[in-house]
Design a protein around this nucleic acid. Structure first.
Length: 263
DNA sequence: CGATTATGATTAA
DNA sequence: TAATCCTAATCGC
C-alpha cells in the first residue's frame, strides 16, 4: 500500500531492525540474484526514504534502490524466516528480523551518484523536515494543467498517490480539475500544511485515514480504513452526503465532492 | 477458477 | 494515449 508514508515507515523499520548488522541477502525469485549475491553478508549501513523511493545503503557505498510501484510490498517476519512462498524478489535475513520484497516495480543496485540523480528528479518530500514548499509552489504557478494531475507528478511534490490526491484536495476544498496555476497562494499554503499533516498522520498510524475525528462518531481505531476517507472510493461525500464524482484524471481515477469542492 | 482491480511509473507510438 | 511490468486479493460466475 505505497504512498510516501509507507516508504518512510519501511526505512524506519529497517533502521531499527537491521541497520548495523550484516544481513544475508538472497533473491529466491531470481531476478535480483546477482546483486543479492554481491551484497550477501555485507554490513547494512542505513535505509533512507525519499518520496516513494527507498534507498538501502550498504558498506562500500553500494545502494539498493527500491520502488514498490502499485502493489509491491515488504513483509516482515522474525528470523529465521520461513521458506519463501511465491515470488520473493529480495530476502533480507537479519539476526532478529527478516524482510521479503515482493512485486516491486524497481529493485536495482545503484551508485550514490545514481541515488542523487533519482532524488534530483523529485519535488520536495513533505515528510522531509528540510523540504522547501517554494519549489512546489513555483511548479504549480508556472505549470499548465489540472492541479489533480500536478499533485500526482512526483517532480512537483514527492510521495502523494491517488488516495491522498483525492483526500488532500477535498480537505482544502479544491476541485481536482481546477488549473494548478489558478490555485491562489493562501490556498497553496493550506494545501502544503494539510499535506504535511496528513502524511505525518499516515506515517504514524500506517494507514491513510484522513477524516477529522470530530466528524465521526466512533474512535478512529475502531474505524475500517475505507471508512476513514471523505471521497476516495466513497459513494457519497462523507461530510455532506452528495454523490461523489469519479472520472479518469491523469491515468488514474479521481474522486471529488461537487458540493465541497466546487469547480 | 478466470477476470478484475489496486495507494505506480516508464516506454513506445 | 496505449501497452507494459510486477503480485495478490477480491469479485463474479
Amino acid at each position: 500500500m505505497p504512498e510516501g508514508h509507507t516508504l518512510h515507515r519501511l526505512a524506519r523499520a529497517l533502521n531499527d531492525d537491521v541497520a548495523g548488522e550484516a544481513p544475508a541477502l538472497s533473491s529466491p525469485q531470481g531476478r535480483f540474484a546477482a546483486a543479492a549475491a554481491r551484497l550477501d553478508g555485507r554490513p547494512l549501513v542505513r535505509a533512507e526514504a525519499y518520496g516513494k523511493h527507498l534507498f538501502v545503503w550498504f558498506d562500500g557505498d553500494e545502494v539498493v534502490h527500491v520502488h514498490l510501484g502499485l502493489y509491491g510490498t515488504f513483509v516482515r517476519q522474525p528470523s529465521p524466516p520461513a521458506p519463501p512462498v511465491g515470488q520473493v524478489r529480495l530476502r533480507v535475513t537479519g539476526e532478529r528480523w527478516s524482510y521479503d520484497l515482493r512485486g516491486p516495480t524497481r529493485c536495482e543496485l545503484v551508485t550514490p551518484a545514481d541515488r542523487d540523480a533519482v532524488v534530483a528528479r523529485l519535488g520536495p518530500d513533505p515528510l522531509d523536515r528540510r523540504a522547501d514548499p517554494e519549489r512546489m509552489w513555483r511548479r504549480l504557478a508556472k505549470g499548465r494543467g489540472p492541479v489533480g494531475v500536478a499533485l500526482m507528478d512526483q517532480s512537483v511534490v514527492a510521495g502523494i498517490g491517488n488516495v491522498l490526491r483525492a483526500e488532500l484536495l477535498f480537505i482544502v476544498g479544491v476541485h481536482p480539475s481546477r488549473q494548478a496555476r489558478d490555485v491562489a497562494r493562501p490556498t497553496f499554503d493550506a494545501l502544503w500544511e494539510v499535506t504535511v499533516a496528513q502524511l505525518r498522520r499516515a506515517y504514524r498510524s500506517g494507514r491513510i485515514i484522513t477524516v477529522d475525528p470530530k466528524e465521526v462518531g466512533r474512535p478512529l481505531s475502531r474505524l475500517r480504513q475505507e471508512e476513514g476517507r471523505y471521497v476516495y472510493k466513497q459513494d457519497v461525500c462523507r461530510r455532506c452526503g452528495t454523490p461523489v464524482q469519479r472520472w479518469p484524471l491523469g491515468a488514474r481515477i479521481a474522486y471529488a465532492c461537487p458540493t465541497c469542492q466546487p469547480s
